[in-house]
Amino acid sequence: MSESLFGMPPANVDADIAEGRVALTVDTSLHSLDAIYAAAYAFIGRCYVLLERPAPERVRVVLAPKPSGADGDALRALIGEFANELLSATWRREITRSNRALIEAVTMQAFAGALGSPSLDDLEAFQFGDEPFEDPLGIAQSWEEKYRKKPRTPEEPTE
């Protein structure tokens, strides 16, 4: 049976205390799907997490603590922590985008410094397969590939 939790807006948070579940309905115009994934992923160690799609602009995140028997207070604390984590993930995403160049530069220097040059043994052990290697920072891309203007898609906002 769905019920509200003290201090939580009933339009966004609902709980089924008997079933040990609590849910937050998220407006995706405020929080991107990437941020929702990031926050949800942080909880899969201690909760069962299910994402639902109640409406086109909404994602409902359902959390059920793995040990059953959580009471209303525990569920309230849990969904509150999730909401904080979601806000943090959303903001982190924006900051990372703004500071991307600085973060990439520092990370690259740190790893170049710590890894050093590969030895002949390292090169010998390297698997030159068909799979593209992981390049999350786009280091291997040419300037043209990385920065060329992409064709504008209809949903992109214009400035």
Partner: peptide
Amino acid sequence: RTVAGELANFALGLTVEAGG
């Protein structure tokens, strides 16, 4: 409950790993 929960977590984790 356990299997359904773990399955959902795996589906979410693998979706995130796949990039969405």
